[in-house]
Design a binder for these strands. Structure first.
Length: 424
RNA sequence: GCCCGGGUGGUGUAGUCCGGCCCAACAUGUGGGCCUGUCGAGCCCACGCCCCGGGUUCAAAUCCCGGCCCGGGCGCCA
């Protein structure tokens, strides 16, 4: 049974419980062992007088974090945590833990993130840490449910690719038999091809790889991207889906992850939709023109804007020049139908209505000094009938970071990959 | 990649400025002992550490140079 399935009302019942030895409190003639499982803690109590002596000695010697299985009787006891304890008659050691431990699961002594990540298997035994990933699981599930209910088809595009999405970011080269290939930075090109294929609404939750040598608390070299692409809509249409999805995800987490939120001491509120929208030009005004129109907003700028607005908001109508070749410009082609979803100063998602006119797209690629030949597999899909379409990509770990107020994005990844970390 | 700060028992810190008083301190842990109501149990005893490589000096955890790594800030970044 799980720790949470046992109640004081089960007084006298025989139960089997298994888990990790969280703590041993040896009082001499009375030994308390706190067993931890996925859901919580349970105390087993061994009074020397009443339990088998051999078992008593074995239990007394058990090392912390060993995995044990205990069979015994539930005893209602006001002096015990949660109002009950288990008096064992069978005590089995499934796996003995070595010592000393690489870090303290009990949180009596803090550990650096570095130490924690080096020993992630043990770090994840801490309820606070595992709660993050229980919530992440719920978020993925909510996103799948939400998009599926809206008629989106889940797809899986290749992660080994021949070319960059837009030439900006650095790619990880890999050896692909006799050729060079790369790890994909984004499913962008493929999900657009699927619009030509007539799938109409697609989504993908998958890994993306960036070979940037950045070293910050909000960048990873391997992250999870939630991507959608949708035909016959403009940027406004997919912005609405995005904000409703975020709202739904918050609602689901509040409803289904009550325990995890409590463990993390976080009180969540469902954000109100529609989210605030400011244009790039308005953003520049907030900055009192410290950034010249046409330049990208740097971190300091985003912090100023984030402080000003707060919570979730969109920045829309970006200068065409600083956005990728596949975005659709307005009639005034200095600005484009592109948007970023922000939370404070963190960019959570970005999207746009796409340029679906073949000639314009080709022109954009050339103008950015990219090679149309390497995009031929993509461009081809635009020559035989492709609907107008729009989409976005959302950084799953960024969303979690925003939701749970994590100070480092690595906290939102089980086994993060960064500039120096490749193991575990 | 740049700037600043840092690397001390398994873990987290003090000591470094101003070299010797440090065969390095505290907490937690580990081993042992006492203890029948713990819930960060308590008490007693013991164990365990100066990132790597050079240099300065009678003497280096401490100063200098290089490397690796970490933290903060930034840059780069659909």
């Amino acid at each position: 049974m799980r720790s949470t399935e046992i109640k004081p009302e089960m007084d006298g019942e025989r139960v089997i419980i298994a888990g990790w030895v969280h703590e041993v409190r040896d009082l001499g003639g009375l030994v308390f062992i706190v067993i931890r499982d996925r859901d919580g803690f349970i105390q087993i109590t061994l009074p020397k007088k009443t339990v088998n002596l051999e078992m008593f000695k074995k239990a007394k010697k058990i090392s912390r974090e060993s995995v044990i299985k205990v069979e015994g009787i539930v005893k209602r006891e006001d002096k015990a945590p949660n109002g009950f304890e288990i008096i064992p008659d069978i005590f089995e050691i499934l796996s003995e833990s070595h010592s000393p431990l690489p870090l303290e699961v009990t949180e009596k002594v803090p550990a650096d993130l570095e130490t924690r990540l080096d020993n992630r298997f043990m770090d994840l035994r801490r309820p606070k840490v595992s709660s993050i990933f229980r919530i992440k699981s719920q978020i993925s599930k909510s996103i799948r449910d939400f998009l599926s209910n809206r008629g989106f088809i889940e797809v899986h595009t290749p992660k080994i690719v021949s070319t960059a999405t837009e030439g900006g970011t650095e790619l990880f080269p890999i050896s692909y038999f006799e050729r060079e290939a790369f790890l994909n930075q984004s499913p962008q090109l493929y999900k657009q091809i699927l619009m030509s294929a007539g799938l109409e609404k697609v989504f993908e939750i998958g890994p993306i790889f960036r070979a940037e040598e950045h070293n910050t608390t909000r960048h990873l070299n391997e992250a999870t991207s939630v991507d959608i692409e949708m035909s016959f809509v403009d940027h406004e249409g997919v912005m609405e889906i995005l904000e409703e999805m975020v709202k739904k995800v918050y609602g689901n987490v509040i409803e289904k992850c009550e325990k995890q939120l409590k463990t993390l001491e976080i009180e969540l509120e469902v954000p109100k939709t529609p989210f605030k929208r400011i244009t790039y030009t308005e953003a520049i005004k907030i900055l009192e023109n410290k950034i010249p129109w046409g330049e990208d907003l740097d971190l300091q700028a985003l912090k100023t804007i984030g402080n000003e607005i707060g919570g979730f908001y969109f920045i829309t109508e970006w200068p065409t020049k600083i956005k990728p070749f596949y975005v659709m410009p307005f009639e005034d082609d200095r600005i484009c139908k592109s948007f970023d979803l922000m939370y404070g100063y963190i960019e959570i998602a970005s999207g746009a209505q796409r340029e679906h006119r073949y000639e314009k797209l080709l022109e954009n690629i050339k103008r950015r000094n990219l090679y149309p030949e390497s995009f031929e597999f993509y461009l081809k899909a635009f020559r035989y009938g492709i609907p107008p379409h729009a989409g976005w990509g959302l950084g799953l770990e960024r969303l979690i970071m925003a939701m749970l107020g994590l100070s480092n994005i690595r906290e939102a990844m089980l086994f993060p990959r960064d500039r120096t970390r490749l193991v575990p």
